[in-house]
Amino acid sequence: MADVKKIATRDSYGNALKELGAEHDDLIVFDADLAGATKTATFQKAFPDRHFDCGIAEGNMIAAAAGAATMGLVPFASSFAMFAAGRAFEQVRNSIGYPHLNVKIGATHGGISVGEDGASHQCCEDFALMRSIPGMVVLCPSDDVEARAAVRAAYEHVGPVYLRFGRLAVPVFHQEEGFSFQIGKGEVLQEGGDVAILATGLMVNEALEAGKALKERGISARVINLCTIKPLDEELVLQAARECGRVITCEEHSVIGGLGEAVCALLSERCPTPVRRIGVNDEFGHSGPAADLLRQFGLCADHIVEVALDLCK
């Protein structure tokens, strides 16, 4: 792993915006005094006339982006997940979701891997909030290659999209060449038949590592990347459940309302299957280095292996 390139998906976001901005002059960007951190500053540097800082006022930013979308522009509105999905939830719901406007919400600093800033800034509720809005697409890319492709797909999709990016540099495991991304489609990264590990965001790489470790222990795990949390790739999940008979979900999010619950809702109705949810267990995070926090909260390959071994007993 030592020679694997690591990039934070927030950097991918900034780079993708800049690339797309060169192709489409209807793409504009809003930020709320966090351009340096969300990396929309990368776009701002290239296109200063269509990057609009809204100051520390996320509610206004989201509804202003909605207004701009009614004029035929494609606004990307950015802040930390805590403020984009949390503080401005009602603006997202009423001014973007209800009129189904073509706004993309680029939310960075999702999950506890925010690290040292602590619980106030570690948003583990954004999937739950955004999933609950009718017509909202929810994406959480796993690495640089997928993140840049997801930004492009979000631009091309007509309608509201919520994208969650991370602060922490994470391994780039996708190959650029031949990579294709489609909203609503999951990706089987490792074939297997004993247990299905469904992961999103930075947990996908952990799931891959766990899959390899399990193989050494004689357990064949199917590792699936679900970048699109909504709409869920139901067929892929159902097939995995039917063929593996055991499911583990992994997300850097509360076990309430996120990928785990989406999978459980689907399986309990259409293919009852034993499921274990790995996520943040209804508690707040705290300050600390991201890598230590992820281990402490069980958001790591070792813990996935543990849970899989227990489930496969």
């Binding site: 504009i28 609009f52 206004n60 509804a63 202003a64 909605a66 207004g67 701009a68 009614t70």
Partner: peptide
């Protein structure tokens, strides 16, 4: 806010 966003877009 939406109106301001429209005016900005215009």
């Amino acid at each position: 806010s939406a109106a301001a966003g429209m005016a900005l877009a215009a």
